[in-house]
């Protein structure tokens, strides 16, 4: 098994006002990486029009593109339409499921979706009390359960989890601690730790920090555009994989 170079970015927040700018930054990406992962918040308002800009900017790249949606992409209740437009443009959109991409003899498995909040172990919301609170927590629990299932059935040489919300606190450092429960949930990390992965990539926390780790030792990277300050970052997974 050989090493894989994975490009990643999140929170590109595209719209008509910056059409064409991000695409230029992707020129030559095929010389730097074999796949591009995009961790949600592709748009600002989640409109169909913005979805079209994303499809135009990320479509027809020389390498496969895997994306998830973020909270902004849900804002106009057009998330399904946006996902369909992206798929029509050849982009793989994960929605709490997984894909295996053959890359020159090596199989890269990517599992994930938007994720959600709730907070981190010891300081998190519980499925208790008002129906609104229960629904909030249940949404994250169900997502984590679907990720666990997707990872369990993912047969690949390298396994990466792609999310919008954060699975750990480490990569939120820089954000006000009061809003951590809206930035991610430990349930996402727990699912990945239970089934194993080489890397978890997320966005959402613009003021956060790039590097962190799950309690089980999986490397976590916050690739929100304002955090990385580059058009994307490249992670090289070595030939060992995780088992």
């Amino acid at each position: 098994m050989r090493a894989l170079r994975i490009a990643a970015v999140a929170d590109i927040h595209l719209g008509e006002d910056i059409r064409g700018h991000y695409r230029k930054k992707l020129e030559g990406i095929e010389h730097r990486a074999e796949v591009l992962l995009v961790g949600g918040d592709l748009t600002r308002h989640g409109t169909i029009e913005e979805g079209q800009v994303v499809a135009d900017e990320l479509g027809d790249l020389p390498i496969p593109v895997v994306a998830v949606l973020g909270n902004h992409d849900y804002h106009s209740d057009a998330d399904r339409e946006i996902a369909a437009m992206l798929r029509d443009a050849g982009i793989i959109v994960l929605d709490d499921d997984a894909v295996v991409i053959p890359l020159d003899g090596t199989r890269l498995g990517v599992a994930g979706g938007k994720g959600f909040g709730g907070g981190f172990a010891g300081k998190c919301a519980s499925e208790f009390g008002e129906p609104e609170t229960k629904a909030f927590v249940r949404h994250t629990k169900e997502i984590a359960e679907r990720w666990r299932h997707a990872l369990k059935n993912l047969d690949a040489d390298h396994r990466v989890v792609l999310s919008h919300y954060s699975p750990v606190k480490d990569t939120l450092a820089g954000e006000p601690p009061e809003i951590y429960p809206f930035l991610g949930s430990y349930l996402l990390a727990e699912a990945a730790d239970a089934e194993g992965a080489d890397l978890i990539v997320h966005g959402h926390a613009h003021l956060g920090t790039e590097k962190g780790m799950t309690p089980g030792g999986i490397r976590v990277r916050n690739v929100a555009l304002p955090v990385i300050g580059h058009s994307y970052v490249v992670y090289c997974l070595d030939g060992e994989g995780v088992h």
Binding site: R5, R32, P226, G229, H230, Y235, C236, L237, D238
Partner: peptide, 13 residues
């Protein structure tokens, strides 16, 4: 304004 530079050095994991 967010300044986005070209990709930097890759990280080996």
């Amino acid at each position: 304004l967010l300044e986005v530079s070209d990709p930097g050095e890759e990280e080996h994991l």
